[in-house]
Design a protein around this nucleic acid. Structure first.
Lengths: 212, 212
DNA sequence: GTCTATAGATCGATAGAC
DNA sequence: GTCTATCGATCTATAGAC
């Protein structure tokens, strides 16, 4: 074995899952890319479902402790500036994923987007079960910036924000191609995030919506 | 035949596609739900791919002319208010889809979200080929509100906005359940959209981002 | 741990009778 | 137009030799 078979499978799987989606990626494609035997996935991971979770876990275990730490350093401020500060604090932890793996940041967010759309709630439970405390810390930090916004509306806005994030990454390949063709702009993941953070911060911090 | 077989298939297919995604929905599931014979899909539509397009076309042909008309009635205004006015003008056309079909608005947006994530650019081409003019009108209306924002940044923000929209609809079932459990709130599609429009308008109209 | 071979299921599509 | 029957391809998962 050149390198650990388990790691070779994880590396091949995460790339393919991010590019094509979970259901569209077969074990045959994964094992061919990883240059390992077809049966080894089931030997090492038990099933395709477990492999998907193992791929995600590798990233979350790296990211979430950094997020916890980063949230502690944020200077509390009210309003859109405060929200933007919280979101900006998430960027460096996200970026470290590309040190762990080439294009790691992009791959991770694409996996997130795929997971939300394909796995019918499994991903959500996986996150809340394993990393619910970190998620809670993040939500609390944002809520603290917006004492005048009702919890319900913060709830909605956070999900809209996740949508912006996840969608733009899931279709980042197409977006990059369009940006290159129409604006002759070489797009990096950092550019996307730099545009995304203020967009989302503005949306989250907007005036409360009148109740129905 | 009770009702036209073709319509029975379209009705069954759109619901299942929206709930489970295109790839995850088999022709057997569709024909069982529609209570028609398995072979009838290929007889009437030729292939599964054509069926997907036919499902989308039914909605777009209903929606897009209304969008064109609605855009003509918008009072041009600068800034976030102008953007919000443009977006608000899209809401009534979207809502008419629920007259055409029960839960039509929700189904349509879910189909959009699924399409963007699953069909690797096919949906985008389908839209731009068939309805590119309407899309162009919409983009122009928003651009006119924001003369100080570079085109590149409007491009990004519009895609973030699409992401918010599409994601929140694609996971609207889960979001509704959470909202009901945590906030004892009965959520309708209109509630989601009423929260979404100002969120997106704020994000789109924010100050320009400093160039890299 | 790694491999071959294959079981067992499901899929889209179609031929051909009615 | 509708049906049955089935082809051929593809998938995950596993049994069993090495």
């Amino acid at each position: 074995m050149a390198k650990d078979t388990k790691v070779r499978i994880l590396n091949a799987a995460e790339t393919l899952f991010a590019e094509q989606g979970y259901a569209q990626t077969s074990m045959r494609t994964i094992t061919a890319r990883a240059d390992v035997n077809l049966a080894s996935v089931n030997y090492h991971f038990g099933s395709k479902k477990n492999l998907i979770q193992a791929v995600l876990k590798r990233y979350f275990d790296l990211l979430m402790p950094q997020v916890d730490e980063a949230l502690l350093t944020v200077q509390p401020r009210l309003g859109a500036q405060g929200v933007e500060a919280v979101l900006a604090a998430l960027v460096p932890p996200m970026m470290t994923l590309s040190q762990f793996r080439s294009n790691g940041t992009e791959i991770f967010v694409q996996l997130l987007g795929r997971g939300y759309n394909e796995t019918q709630g499994h991903l959500r439970r996986f996150i809340m079960n394993g990393y619910g405390e970190t998620v809670g810390n993040l939500v609390a930090a944002i809520r603290a910036c917006l004492p005048q916004i009702p919890d319900q509306q913060i709830f909605w806005r956070l999900h809209f924000a996740i949508g912006s994030f996840v969608f733009s990454m899931a279709s980042s390949k197409a977006l990059k191609e369009i940006a290159a063709a129409d604006y002759h702009q070489q797009v990096e993941i950092a550019d996307v995030i730099n545009n995304l953070v203020p967009f989302v911060a503005q949306g989250i911090a907007g005036s409360p919506v009148a109740p129905d």
